[in-house]
Write a protein that binds this DNA or RNA. Structure first.
Length: 484
RNA sequence: GGUCUCGUCGCCUAGUGGCUGGGCAGAGCUCUGCAAAAGCUCCUACGGCGGUUCGAAUCCGCCCGAGACCUCCA
């Protein structure tokens, strides 16, 4: 099925076709590993996960997915510096080698990042590579040399800058974002950078070494410029190295459109002489309890924070799918509860489909039509809310018990396909719970007591069963025991 | 100041000019000593004011309100 995606480059929703007609090459801006992933990060990663899953399952494509890890920047350097407040004992012992400290620090958060990915159902095996920026320093330097040789970079105070004024004479700057240079609000963050720049809008390609900070040697144009890469250059170099330019889809949060992605386009065009990506797809931000997530508002959460509160990662994954990726999502605790219940309802439906049919099971289901509806919703710019609506509408119209045996496998197939994308259910029979013998006996005694209308005794036994961690649910002629 | 997005049932999220979207919450019923689960039923909203139209939540205008981005925050 043809998939349509909103392309920030053309500002239109367009049918997607891989450039080489076969495999889809996706590059996603990954995390800067200076802290644990927060909800906003998760939304960005989940968006790309859904994207690549839809391309595989609905589009039938092979996908080559790369997500980078930024392990060198101001924050990671700050965090790994000697005497840093954020250095944890678990990271190991610091030495006088700043590069080694940086590695220890970012290793720690990279590992945490992979754990978080696994928790929210993103499989490492779906990536062809998860490159770390510091493993591609040579490639970045090569690109910087190319840009310099092409005349679009200059050296100042030991740093190298991209010359935007020069670049603007050759190409459009502002492909993803309407840039009105006259109206840049002056003075907010500009002063934060102590390096000299020719123009206020030039961005750094290579930052001069500072005392006590990590650095890499770099010889360019006959001079030695020890230092470290700028942020934007990382993605350009890794994208080219691992996927080749132009690739099919570049993803990231809306905030990255400018300047990060804009600069990436300029760099790659200036240095490699080619476009970066055919499609640019950006996920919107999320709000938490109606406000922008911020420590100031007390609504800033990492995945770990939420799991420590007893929330399930897959409920969070499911909740994120209740809004389309390119609209602002209001993340609330009530919303998580809603998501948890809705998710469980689907799971129960799947379990029930595995139960043996009865005499009532004679509804033949048009599974092709259902799948078509679900697929076309997802193919429509990853419209997960629409797909879920169709799924629930179907469930409302059909009870599992009534569905004919002949339809069940096909229907489970459809649910399986959905789960290949949503990845929050299990497609198998209801697991039989191992109930401790002790609890079984208590339950049996209570059932007897109840039949004898000895309710005081029954209630006492129910309390014991509850204490043991089980809920006893009475039916008409039998009861069930469930884990609490 | 510039650019842009959005205001839908208690909450969250869809939406086509006309045929009451979905989830969660809530209400009633069935069931029922209690509790829970499950099933059935109900819950007709679209920021305000004008306009276009036979008909608008959906198109146009104005207003009000919320939010985002504007040089390294996903």
């Amino acid at each position: 099925m043809t998939i349509r995606l909103y392309n920030t480059l053309t500002k239109r929703t367009e049918p997607f076709v891989p450039l080489d007609g076969k495999a889809v090459r996706i590059y996603s801006c990954g995390p800067t590993v200076y802290n644990f992933a927060h909800l906003g990060n998760l939304r960005a990663f989940l968006f790309t996960d859904i994207l690549q899953r839809v391309l595989r399952v609905v589009g039938g494509y092979n996908v080559r997915w790369v997500m980078n890890i930024t392990d060198v920047d101001d924050k990671t350097i700050l965090g790994s510096a000697l005497c840093s407040q954020t250095w944890l004992p678990e990271m190991g012992g610091q030495t006088s080698d700043a590069n080694a400290n940086l590695r220890l620090f970012t290793d720690y958060y990279s590992k945490a990042f992979f754990d978080d990915l696994a928790a929210i159902g993103i499989q490492k095996s779906d990536f062809v590579a998860i490159p770390r920026a510091t493993d591609y320093i040579a490639e970045m330097q090569d690109l910087i040399r190319r840009i310099f040789d092409a005349g679009f970079a200059y050296i100042s105070e030991g740093s190298i800058y991209f010359n935007l004024n020069e670049w603007r004479k050759h190409a459009k700057y502002g492909r993803l974002f309407t840039i009105d240079a006259e109206n840049f609000q002056q003075g907010v963050r500009i002063d934060a950078d102590e390096y000299d720049r020719e123009s206020v809008s030039d961005f750094v390609l290579w930052k001069a070494r500072k005392d006590g900070e990590p650095y890499w040697d770099f010889d360019i144009n006959g001079v030695s410029l020890p230092g470290r890469p700028g942020w934007h250059i990382e993605c350009s170099a890794m994208g080219q190295s691992l996927l080749g330019l132009p690739f099919d889809i570049h993803t990231g949060g809306v905030d990255l459109r400018f300047p990060h992605h804009e600069d990436e386009i300029a760099q790659s065009m200036a240095g490699y002489g080619c476009e970066t990506s055919n499609f640019w797809c950006h996920n919107e931000f999320l709000e938490v309890e109606g406000r922008k997530m911020s420590k100031r508002f007390g609504n800033f959460f990492t995945l770990r924070d939420l799991m420590n509160r007893g929330l399930e990662a897959l409920d969070i994954r499911f909740a994120m799918m209740s809004a389309q990726y390119n609209s602002v999502l209001n993340f609330t605790f009530f919303g998580i509860e809603s998501a948890a219940k809705a998710r469980r309802r689907v799971q129960e439906f799947i379990y029930d489909l595995h139960e043996p049919p009865t005499a009532e099971s004679n509804t033949v289901v048009n599974t092709e039509e259902l799948q078509e509806q679900l697929y076309s919703a997802l193919a429509d710019n990853l419209h997960t809310p629409k797909a879920l609506e169709r799924l629930f509408a179907f469930m409302n119209e059909n009870r599992p018990i009534n569905i004919a045996a002949s339809s069940r496998n096909a229907l489970l197939g459809v649910f399986g396909k959905m789960n290949d994308i949503f990845a929050v259910w299990e497609i198998k029979p209801r697991p039989s719970r191992e109930i401790p013998e002790k609890v079984k006996i208590l339950a049996e005694r209570r059932w007897q007591a109840k039949k004898e209308r000895n309710f005081a005794e029954a209630d006492a036994l129910r309390a014991e069963i509850t204490l043991a961690g089980y809920a006893m649910k009475d039916g008409k002629d039998s009861y069930t025991l469930e884990n609490i």
